[in-house]
Design a protein around this nucleic acid. Structure first.
Lengths: 339, 339
DNA sequence: TTGTAAGCGTTATCAT
DNA sequence: ATGATAACGCTTACAA
């Protein structure tokens, strides 16, 4: 900036004003400064210096519970990010991606830049406390954290709704659940009674509770050994679990899946095993990712409005409205896999 | 930092050294500083100040040709980002997402922070010159730019390979192409002769050239009115175009799609219209996105190694190896839609 | 309307 | 091994 100022024969303050306070100098001078600066290859104030001085950077940090790399492969996270990005771009904010995994010095340093944070998913460790201690506004998504604003859905009710829908059918005798992250294990396995008594903060437990309530309401039981645990929301893992479930005897007539990725995997496995959906097995998902409406048959699921969640979280953060606790409505989406 | 230094009765320089130069002070003191700082809620140097002073930030800017929001919905972009993120995290770099769309002052400011850039896709406008003028290292992906390093694939050859594979079959008489961004129009439409003579930088033109070469080699023609233009790589647009193509007469026997998203849409439309794939129509894709292997039937396509592209671009950038021009190999992936 | 100068939080150099 | 200090590029209160 100094160079530019020297070149144009004005002071640095005037150049700065040209960028930040149009009213502080004549339109003509401003025009000239902006034009000639650009020609000199100066495109505006240096962000580091500016934010050092102003105490704000125009950058919003998005911290993901899972690794950044993995998150890019997860359709649910991608939808959320889409919503967030939309609002941030509209408001000319920059998006810095942070991962909760690294607690390196580099990461900590980086956390000093953003003006605010969106936290997605339950972070392990103390990655959180750090952020909270910065005193900057924080909005969390899909969990609760201290007095931060949050955007959530009613997982229990959403799960109840779709299970209720599925279990009202005639053949509801054999219910199986393909669950996501129900316990702390990296293996695919069925649950045991003790597993259920272990407390857990995972939202999947809420979904399970919803299923259970619906089962009770419909006077059917969900045996604990018909509940599978899948450690990560990937098609590969899900297919393995789905194959176990769909080759177990007696064959489930209702397969409640805790994510669409899992449900879509179940659909593929059913197809491969020549099990008719929804003829022999009714399959339900959760999330309503874009792919859910494109499968054959299209998936019956619970829409959790991820795009909207992202938009809302970003909006709340930017509007300084970051104390509010919002519970978004879920919506039952009845397609073909469970009518 | 000043506070911390005061509290601990040492100078700021010593605190700084505790974080940056372990060898400059006794292990004991360092330990004490790190520990007590954390307790005081100081987690390390402020990024703005540090990068102002050091001239580097540890942040890498990733600039996308399309809007950030859209990019999160595009499986190809997501795979690339996954690869990039993997390498950046490994190297403890932060990822700042930039969009080429905005040429706002905020954006320009933000561009001053990163130590280097990865540019994805052909940017419109002068978003590029700005970046180039920063003098910072740049690696571009899926196009060429001045003397910057680049990661590309041989689009013409990849397209040739799969078209060659498809056209070797017996019934190769009716070839249609579902093309992506072949011309400058936001409407879905068929091409005309003039369109083809308009020059274009789009990689889709290279793919088209590959198809054409394969057609020639197999002595079949691809009528210009059997080439569709789809303005954006979305399932919705693709379905509209696919429906046009698959209800046109004579029915194509080979449908060459310039992306997997388009090909998967074509598969759904074919299914809906009761057109057998590959029985009546052979369908080919391009990209090899994760979904391609999961469709029914699984899609025959061209793998363009997006993950690897991302990893490589990031690695080149970080290793200061940002002058090299790499052409990655494509790989023919024969599945069920075109055997 | 424009210029001067202090200070934002760090780090590197130099001195102790 | 540790401390004092200038400088990084900018913004802003205040002076002219």
């Amino acid at each position: 900036m100094k160079q530019v100022a020297a070149q144009l024969g004005v002071s640095t303050a005037t150049v700065s004003n040209a960028y930040n306070r149009p009213d502080q100098l004549s339109e003509k001078l401003r025009e000239r400064i902006l034009r000639e600066s650009a020609e000199l290859g100066y495109y505006g104030p240096n962000l580091a210096a500016r934010s050092l001085r102003r105490g704000e950077s125009g950058v919003i940090g998005v911290m993901l519970a899972d690794s950044i790399s993995y998150s890019f492969s997860d359709p649910v996270a991608n939808q959320l990010m889409q919503g967030i990005a939309e609002v941030l771009v509209e408001n000319k904010k920059q998006l810095l991606l942070l991962s909760s995994g690294m607690t390196s010095a580099e990461q900590s340093s980086a956390e000093s830049l953003p003006d605010g944070f969106i936290l997605y998913g339950a972070l392990q460790g103390n990655g959180f406390e750090h952020i909270k201690r910065t005193g900057k506004p924080v909005v969390v998504v899909d969990f609760e954290f201290a007095d931060s604003g949050s955007v959530n859905i009613d997982n229990e009710q959403g799960a109840y709704n779709i299970a209720e829908h599925a279990l009202q059918k005639e053949d509801n005798s054999q219910v199986a659940v393909l669950g996501l992250r129900l316990i702390d294990s990296s293996r695919i396995c069925r649950l045991s009674q003790e597993d259920l008594s272990m407390p857990s903060q995972e939202i999947s437990r809420l979904r399970l509770a919803g299923y259970m309530r619906a089962a009770e309401a419909n006077k059917v039981s969900i045996p604990v050994d018909k509940i599978w645990h899948i450690p990560i929301n990937s098609p590969e893992k899900a297919e393995v679990a789905a194959r176990e479930a769909l080759t177990s005897s007696p064959l489930p007539t209702v397969l409640l899946c805790m994510s669409d990725v899992i449900a879509l995997a179940a659909l593929r496995v059913a197809n491969e095993l020549n099990i008719a959906v929804p003829g022999q097995v009714q399959v339900t998902g959760f999330d309503d990712i874009p792919e859910a409406s494109r499968s054959t048959p299209p998936l019956s699921t619970v829409c959790q409005q991820n795009l909207e969640k992202g938009r809302l979280a970003a909006t709340m953060l930017l509007e300084g409205n970051s104390k509010e606790k919002v519970i978004l409505e879920t919506r039952l989406v009845v397609r073909q896999t469970c009518k």
